[in-house]
Design a protein around this nucleic acid. Structure first.
Length: 636
DNA sequence: GCGATCAGGT
DNA sequence: CACACCTGATCGC
């Protein structure tokens, strides 16, 4: 749960996702998504009054968030003060002190966050630097490289601070199966059940919150049906969702709710009370989406767990895992990182310390420490706190030494970045023929490691109480073949790939697309432009490509080393199949030399066909990578 | 009567 | 499986 107080050091006159206390004095408000823990104070009478007397204070959010927010009458007084912004459209906003007339300009860009419909991250660019507030997010490994506005030309923007959704920034949550993997598991379970007869129905036991919609749309698509829900009016302008939900109870898939729905279920009734027309009793299973996580060296990753004779849990996460967060941060290398959330059982100090290791200065420091000594970089010096405290409580009884060592190593190499090497994130070709997850290799991928998760320690999954209904779905049994029509993130995603020769606006003020709207301080003039936007695209997911390679990602060996003879860009985090959690590919100079020679980015621009080849290989996990201390035949 | 907060539940 | 929300009790205004 977010404990972000609402304001950022760099731009303290704006408030985000908090609307009480000090935030009552903000010059502008931002709402990243429509979850209650990010809306504290948003219906407060004091704020409401302030709005009535203000000519300039507005609330900025995505169109979808606006729609969802105004669907709740308690927030309808915001209507005239909301300025919805398009995704990925830098917009200049004037921050006016209404008492003094003092003014500051800032450019904000909404970036899809993949957390729930309408969820965005806010990128602020202004005279106090570039700052990214992530809101809540779930991005897959490699996604940061695909977000155009995090780049300037071919380079990653210089980010001063990231205000981070650190919900799972803890090695306990090292790995969470990708959305694709989770959906496939759920599909199989649902499909096996509802195909038995028309009296076999599924209850998706979802909480009352936005974020499950992509589950509905995928199930609806896969089984050519609509999911029964209590309400759908909030989606009236979102046809991508609307077409997969219904209030007609004659459906085999339900996501309806009732205050006593658990009791209902025990009595073999759906929350909506629906029974078969002819009196035949229904056969109901419940599937409860819940977060499941796995440790770094996890072997099994069951995405479905049977919890009763007709109850299941299905893996589902709104937030990025530890390794996904690390991938994100190691790509951006901000100067500062501030946690918005303290994971349960941790302290602010711990999280802050762990995040420090992902900051840019940390890498400078690492270089400073190691270089003068002329010590082999492979030597096991490790960054202060990371290895020791983070893994400790997770894998008790396990020998962590090798892991730590590698972590230390990776950390060290990754973080080092000679000046000038801040690499052009040469874009990965969108058209890469990503390998369809090969289930056999998938299975093999989970080598020799044990679940830190505990849940299915031993045979818990085997204790199906003889119902013999639906078999356990696990990732490793390789059963879930990606259905050809299955999840289509693209439908909900509007980010463009980063073109090879991207030359985006280098800095803030050059890229104003709707200055008139915001600088005029009369947003009302534009208020009705939603009419044009009768419907709009959603940002349910941030997955741009199908990261089939990611299914493996999670359990890759600890070290990935690029072959030195490859000609490759200094930093090509295409993400396709690359960044193994905690490990990144590194500049050639860093791989082959123990000393650090600052590289000149322009000095050896790789040929584009070389790049294509490389990316292709990276995407399929081929040759380019060599396994360290592990069977190199695992992938292929 | 309303809001804020907490405990407890799913 | 630690998310996000609901309900109900209590307190203060």
């Amino acid at each position: 749960m977010s404990s972000f107080a609402g304001r950022m050091k760099e731009y303290p006159t704006v408030s985000l996702d908090r609307f009480d206390r000090e935030n009552l004095h903000a010059r502008a408000y931002f709402l990243s998504h429509c979850h209650k823990d990010h809306m504290k104070g948003l219906k407060g009478p004091l704020l409401r009054r302030k709005l009535q007397f203000s000519r300039t204070v507005r609330l900025y959010c995505s169109f979808v968030t606006k729609e969802l927010l105004l669907n709740n009458p308690k927030y309808s007084f915001w209507e005239e003060y909301i300025v919805p912004l398009e995704l990925e459209s830098p917009t200049q906003i004037s921050l006016v002190d209404e008492a003094t007339g003092e003014k500051e300009e800032v450019v904000v860009t909404l970036l899809p966050a993949g957390h729930c419909p309408g969820s965005v991250m806010f990128l602020f660019e202004g005279c106090h630097g570039n700052v990214l507030y992530t809101g809540d997010f779930r991005l897959a490994v490699g996604d940061a490289a695909r977000i155009e506005h995090l780049h300037s030309g071919s380079r990653v923007k210089d980010i001063q601070s990231v205000y981070l959704d650190s919900t799972f920034y803890d090695p306990r949550f090292y790995q969470i199966p990708t959305r694709e993997v989770c959906l496939n598991g759920i599909s199989e379970l649902v499909g096996n059940w509802i195909s038995q007869s028309s009296y076999h129905v599924v209850w998706l036991n979802c909480k009352a919150a936005y974020g499950y919609e992509y589950l509905f749309t995928n199930m609806g698509e896969e089984f050519n049906t609509q999911i029964h829900v209590n309400h759908l009016d909030m989606f009236k302008k979102m046809p991508e969702i609307l077409s997969y939900v219904t209030t007609d109870r004659r459906s085999q898939i339900h996501a309806c709710r009732h205050p006593k729905d658990d009791e209902f279920f025990q009595g073999n009734r759906l929350p909506c009370g629906c029974t078969a027309a002819d009196g035949t009793p229904l056969h109901i299973i419940s599937i409860k989406p819940s977060t499941m996580w796995f440790g770094e060296r996890t072997k099994k990753t069951n995405v479905i767990i049977k919890t009763g004779s007709s109850s299941y849990r299905a893996c589902f996460s709104f937030h990025s895992s530890y390794s996904e967060i690390r991938d994100f941060l190691s790509y951006l290398k901000p100067v500062n990182i501030y946690p918005n959330v303290i994971p349960l059982g941790r302290t602010l100090a711990e999280v802050t310390r762990m995040l420090k290791l992902m900051c840019r200065n940390q890498s400078d420091q690492a270089a400073f420490i190691y270089k003068p000594l002329g010590v082999l970089k492979r030597s096991r010096v490790e960054p202060p706190t990371y290895g020791s405290e983070s893994d400790e409580d997770l894998f008790d009884g396990m020998d962590l030494a090798p892991v730590r060592k590698k972590m230390g190593l990776n950390q060290e190499i990754k973080n080092y970045e000679p000046p000038g090497c801040r690499a052009p994130p040469v874009s990965v070709e969108e058209s890469l023929p990503l390998p369809v997850a090969d289930s056999s290799s998938l299975g093999q991928n989970y080598f020799d490691c044990t679940e830190s998760n505990g849940e299915d320690e031993d045979g818990e999954e085997e204790d199906e109480k003889g119902k013999g209904d639906t078999k356990q779905t696990t990732e490793e049994d390789g059963k879930e073949n990606p259905s050809p029509q299955a999840p289509k993130w693209e439908d909900f995603f509007t980010t463009e790939m980063l073109p090879d020769s991207q030359n985006s606006h280098s800095h803030s003020c050059c890229s104003v697309t709707s200055a008139s709207r915001t600088s005029s301080q009369t947003p009302e003039l534009f208020g009705e432009e939603d009419d044009v936007n009768d419907t709009f695209s959603l940002t349910l997911s941030a997955s741009l490509s199908n990261h089939s390679s990611q299914n493996m990602d999670s359990c890759l060996p600890d070290t990935v080393i690029l072959q030195p003879e490859q000609s490759h860009p200094q930093r090509k985090e295409g993400g396709s199949g690359t960044p193994q959690p905690g490990v990144e590919e590194m500049p050639e100079s860093q791989v082959s030399s123990d000393f650090d020679i600052p590289c000149t980015p322009e000095s050896k621009a790789p040929q584009s066909d070389e790049l294509t080849q490389l990316y292709r290989k990276l995407a399929s996990g081929e040759e380019v990578i060599a396994w360290h201390e592990h069977d190199s035949s695992v992938l292929r």
